[in-house]
Design a protein around this nucleic acid. Structure first.
Length: 809
DNA sequence: ATAGGGTTAG
């Protein structure tokens, strides 16, 4: 027996039945003895088959027309989008009933013609015709497809006034309208206020509403309730619940739904099938997805697109490309979703050649006119790192939407062009585009990278004001942003406000506390995370071990390090070893550190050797230090730090000749030390300072302030640590050199400009020098200031003469 | 003769 999809089954039954009938009428065309009743029936059949011209011929031939005749013809025109013709007849018709009005209104609503539809809606009332459930159904559908919330609310008011608020059709329309306008709470309220006898369409609208509003779990729950209530599910219900399953990777539940689908007999519907393919593909069950796809009667482009996306997400780019080729071979009609799906392959494969040829294909087939396709091109080029191409495509787009902008913004951010990303984000706002979750998460992570708190706060404020629903990705970015800007309390507040925390949220907090010198809190949060049932990942352990090493918790560190592979099956990477070596080095266990290094399964990278070199310097182990430095010379040939460290180590042990040799070697290799500078942001403007910098317009004030600072902190007990001065001058010169270090200049400027009570936030590109660290502790006590200094390694919170790093950094 | 719900992209 031939399997027919339901969609076609329904249609073919009806058309078959009608064909015969209509053909018969057609045969008798022109026979004036035809009764009015028969003509009306034929007119109706022709209109249902969209045979408008024939319908019109029949209409014109009819000598006797009644209300039904006129309404059918008007509806026929309206339903096929021929609104001018419908309007002409509407004006001519001798009798306008509510059906006449509704037929015309329905036509305008279907075409999305808001102004005309509402003119008619008010017009009919003006002429004494009351809108009924049909009218409101049409109008609400218009509001929901166009997202016209204000209009929708107006209609809602009208519904209440005219006491349609318990009408199934009207309430379903309202639920759908609110859901489509992203007002899921209103939709939910209306739905819940209806009595328990809700019909299946309203249930389905609610399931779909939740699913489309990113409330996948609620959609699933609603579907469950629907099943429990014994309400029938159909070809509309299943796609919605399957989308929800796909969104939260609820593959097992999705498979159960699949079972229900088979029992209900809807498995032959293309919408259901394509949703199944998509669900399985997104739940990483490519085999099941493929099985559904292969069993389909028709080559459905949506299902194929979903399959391609699924393959790309699983890293099976070759498979995705071969599907794309098969689509061509099967002569399938591609749509504007196909190219975005397949372009993703090239983004992850960095395959420029094939990308170009697909772009040619896009141009050739006229698909460059589609926004979706252009957005995907922008995204692909940006992800490949080809920002010029991305920008070019972007620039040529006539109407850019939030996705176009997001693709470009994210592209710049991913390629380390954070400032450019921020600039583009501002341009986007100026262009009047409302940000969405994705661009917000992306821009907040750019703020984290640049540690620009004020901008991040503004984005946060805008997000709150926008009324966008909170999303885990935005919240995670907020936690990270605040933590990385040194506002650990704020990060913590966002964390607490979240309904669900995932491994990324927890990790952001753990890393955040560690970077802000609160390693013990990090460990506490890690234990809480485990207790909450969240599994740690590779990055969680980097944060955790970093926390242990900075807090000097070497036993905990060793315990957690051992649990990584044993309990969670995560193989430690060089990052974890580096933390452990740092931890052991700090505790003076240099031998253990070296042993650990040689036990590594993976090749030690620069971070590992750096940790060892730092440990060697602290403990004066020259021999091991030499080895570490030599490895670093090879691994990071342009990095001056290992040269300087080794040279300093030689100097410290009196080996002047060796020290000089390393300096010469460094010079001859053309390696220069990265110049240190510090900066501070005041009212959105960044003021940066080099050591002994006199370029700032307020230099005189700043240097006067430094003198005052030095005087006061010396009185409080500060003694300059001359060993940190680099220049070969006399003692006094060295002391002055120290006083004008970039971080001290920035702090002096901060003291002059930041109001009392507000923290002074300083940034430094390198590690803070030891003398400055001591001085800032005194400054915080003498000037009663909270000073937050972010250096290349971590945050230092100076308060009342103490630093959060515990003098260990 | 007129009304309500569904799949794929960043």
């Amino acid at each position: 027996m031939i399997k027919l999809s339901f969609k076609y089954l329904n249609f073919s039954f009806k058309s078959c039945h009608r064909c015969i009938h209509v053909r018969c009428i057609h045969f008798h065309f022109g026979n004036s003895s035809q009764s009015k009743l028969d003509c009306n029936r034929a007119l109706n059949e022709l209109s249902k088959l969209s045979r408008i011209n024939e319908a019109r011929k029949l209409f014109d031939k009819m000598s006797e027309r009644d209300e039904f005749t006129w309404n059918t013809m008007i509806a026929a025109y309206a339903n096929s989008g021929k609104l001018t013709e419908a309007m002409v007849l509407f004006k001519d018709t001798p009798m306008k009933s509510s059906v006449t009005w509704n037929s015309l209104i329905s036509g305008y609503c279907r075409r999305g013609m808001e102004i005309e539809a509402f003119d008619l809606f008010w017009g009919m009332q003006f002429e004494g015709q009351r809108p009924n459930q049909y009218t409101m159904g049409s109008i609400l559908r218009l509001c929901s497809t166009l997202g016209l919330l204000q209009r929708g609310k107006q209609v809602h008011g009208y519904v209440i006034k005219t006491q349609f608020e318990s009408n199934d059709y009207v309430v379903t329309g309202l639920v759908d309208m609110y859901a489509k306008c992203n007002c899921i709470l209103e939709a939910e309220y209306l739905f819940k206020m209806m009595p328990d006898t809700k019909n299946h369409v309203m249930w389905t609208a609610m399931v779909a509403g939740y699913s489309q509003n990113g409330e996948a779990f609620k959609a699933i729950e609603c579907y469950r309730d629907m099943v429990v209530e014994g309400v029938e599910c159909n070809q509309f219900t299943f796609p919605s619940v399957l989308t929800a399953c796909a969104a939260v990777q609820a593959g097992n539940f999705g498979a159960q739904v699949h079972g229900c689908i088979i029992r209900s007999g809807f498995e032959a519907n293309v919408f259901v099938q394509s949703a199944l393919v998509d669900m399985y593909a997104k739940c990483r069950d490519l085999d099941s997805a493929m099985r559904v796809l292969e069993n389909m009667e028709v080559d459905d482009v949506v299902s194929w697109n979903s399959m391609i996306v699924g393959c790309v997400r699983q890293g099976c780019e070759e498979e995705a490309l071969s599907l794309f080729q098969k689509m061509h071979a099967r002569d399938m009609k591609l749509d504007d979703f196909t190219y975005p799906s397949v372009l993703n392959c090239f983004a992850s494969m960095k395959d420029m050649k094939n990308a170009m040829s697909v772009q040619c294909l896009i141009v050739k087939t006229g698909f460059q006119a589609y926004k979706l396709v252009n957005n995907a091109l922008v995204d692909m080029y940006a992800k490949q790192g080809n920002l010029d191409c991305a920008f070019q495509v972007f620039n040529h787009m006539p109407n850019k939407d939030v996705v176009s902008w997001t693709s470009l913004v994210t592209g710049y951010a991913h390629n380390g062009r954070h400032e450019a990303a921020l600039k583009l984000f501002c341009d986007m706002r100026i262009a009047g585009i409302c940000p969405d979750h994705i661009v917000l998460a992306s821009i907040l992570s750019a703020c984290s990278e640049l540690t620009i708190l004020e901008f991040g706060q503004q984005v946060h404020a805008n997000f709150v004001k926008s009324g966008l629903q909170s999303s885990i990705s935005v919240d995670n970015s907020l936690v990270t942003m605040y933590a990385r800007c040194g506002c650990i309390e704020e990060a913590s507040r966002v964390f607490d406000s979240m309904q669900i925390q995932d491994v990324i949220t927890w990790t952001a907090l753990i890393v955040g506390y560690a970077q802000n010198g609160k390693g013990k809190d990090s460990v506490r949060f890690y234990d809480q995370m485990i207790a909450s049932g969240t599994k740690p990942d590779f990055i969680t352990f980097i944060g955790l071990l970093f926390a242990c090493s900075h807090a000097g918790l070497w036993e905990s560190g060793r315990f957690y390090f051992a649990s990584m592979e044993k309990v969670y099956g995560i193989k430690p990477g060089p990052e974890h070893y580096a933390c452990m070596i740092d931890l052991l080095g700090r505790s003076g266990k240099l031998v253990e550190a070296e042993t650990l290094l040689y036990q590594m399964d993976v090749e030690p990278d620069a971070t590992v050797w750096k940790a060892l070199l730092a440990a060697c310097r602290v403990h004066g182990n020259l021999e091991l230090g030499e080895r570490a430095a030599k490895n670093l010379f090879e691994l990071e040939p342009t990095n001056a730090v290992p040269y300087i460290m080794l040279s300093n180590m030689y100097s410290a042990s009196g080996k002047w000749e060796d020290a000089a040799r390393i300096r010469r070697m460094m010079k001859s290799r053309g390696i220069t030390k990265e110049p240190g500078f510090s900066w501070i942001e005041i009212n959105g403007k960044v003021h940066s300072f080099m050591s002994e910098d006199r370029g700032h317009p307020r230099t005189a004030d700043i240097y006067t302030k430094i003198d005052e600072i030095m005087l006061l902190i010396k009185e409080a007990g500060y003694v300059p640590e001359i060993s940190f001065a680099l220049h070969n001058t006399d003692e006094e010169g060295k002391e002055l050199g120290l006083a004008y270090h970039s971080e001290k200049l920035a702090i002096a400027f901060g003291l002059l400009n930041v109001p009392l009570g507000a923290p002074i936030r300083i940034f430094k590109n390198l590690r803070v020098c030891g003398d400055c660290h001591t001085a800032v502790k005194y400054i915080s006590r003498v000037f009663l200031r909270h000073i937050i200094l972010r250096d290349s390694n971590c945050f230092h919170h100076f308060k009342q003469g103490h630093c959060s790093c515990g003098d260990y950094w």
